[in-house]
């Protein structure tokens, strides 16, 4: 327990703890608002915001007062925080001595965690790029006219759960993991386990081709066929099947939007899938070529 408190009380980890609490709080609040709206919609009243958007209030003083108060409260929090907790300063930078563990800034810990499962070009370049592009693409892919400007759950379940899955689980939870559960050597430690520099964990991993008992000596374009096949099916077969099942969804989006949406979504899901394959089968790579590995 002291170890958990020790990590928690490191000055730079306070915002992370705060973030986790706030994210959960606000997500909960959003859900409460959404469910309330959904109940109203079911009762035929329409969302609360609809009722309110007919009314307009003066910015001065109503909005301005609220903004000012928010600023004051934030200031109070900042001042107390800045007087009580000092920013960290470790030893002077020494390129010859690598701390163990060496962690990226906390907001990038999700990416650093991904490095366990993917090579740097994927985890550090391709995924972040797709995250940014994917986020920007959301408005152009979301053809659901409902839910524009008010909280609702039942009118846009796919959007909400897809986003929350990506945000809460694949981003925030990974940051939590990277902060509290990764120690020296990037070994896994429970939050209550003291960090031992000398911990040795058996970490032998196999590739897909090895799992399927293919002779390592076969040339790569033959040996990696199963891996390529897997990816191919992942990105073509699954969307096809889903399109057949959810015809309305497919029709709403059209082929291009549908496929881009599925591509992004499935790419995102590759991360948890790879993680599960690693934990269960000790799988390291699906595909191994002389130029890149996936």
């Amino acid at each position: 327990m002291e170890h958990f408190i020790k990590i928690l009380s490191k000055p730079d980890n306070i915002p992370i703890a705060g973030m986790v609490l706030l994210v959960f709080f606000y997500t909960g609040w959003a859900f409460v608002m959404a469910i309330r709206n959904d109940l109203r919609i079911k009762a035929g009243k329409g969302p609360l915001e609809l009722e309110e958007s007919g009314l307009k209030v003066d910015v001065m003083p109503h909005l301005l007062k609220r903004e000012f108060i928010a600023a004051l409260v934030v200031t109070i929090i900042l001042v107390i925080w800045s007087v009580a907790v000092n920013a960290p300063l470790e030893e002077i930078a020494n390129p010859a001595v690598t701390p163990n563990p060496s962690k990226a800034p906390w907001y990038f810990l999700g990416l650093q965690e991904m490095l366990v499962y993917f090579d740097p070009w994927l985890a550090g370049v391709v995924f972040p790029t797709l995250i940014i592009l994917g986020l920007m693409a959301i408005p152009y892919l979301d053809k659901n006219a409902k839910g524009n400007g008010y909280y609702t759950l039942q009118e846009r379940p796919f959007a909400i759960f897809g986003f929350l899955f990506g945000f809460l689980i694949l981003w925030v939870a990974m940051i939590f993991t990277g902060t509290f559960m990764r120690g020296p050597g990037w070994n896994f430690f429970s939050p209550f386990e003291p960090w031992d520099v000398h911990k040795v964990v058996p970490l032998t991993n196999v590739d897909l081709s090895e799992l399927l008992d293919i002779d390592p000596k076969t040339p790569w374009y033959v040996r990696e066929v199963p891996g390529f096949l897997f990816l191919l099916l992942w990105f073509t077969f699954i969307p096809y099947v889903v399109a057949l099942v959810k015809r309305a969804f497919f029709a709403q989006l059209g082929i291009v939007r549908y496929w881009v949406t599925m591509f992004l979504f499935l790419f995102m899901l590759l991360l948890p899938v790879k993680m599960i394959l690693r934990w269960t089968l000790n799988l390291k790579y699906l595909i191994v070529t002389p130029w890149f590995n996936i």
Partner: peptide, 11 residues
């Protein structure tokens, strides 16, 4: 607003 102002001042 008044109370928050006072708190800020004390802080």
């Amino acid at each position: 607003f008044g109370w928050i102002g006072i708190v800020l001042f004390l802080v």
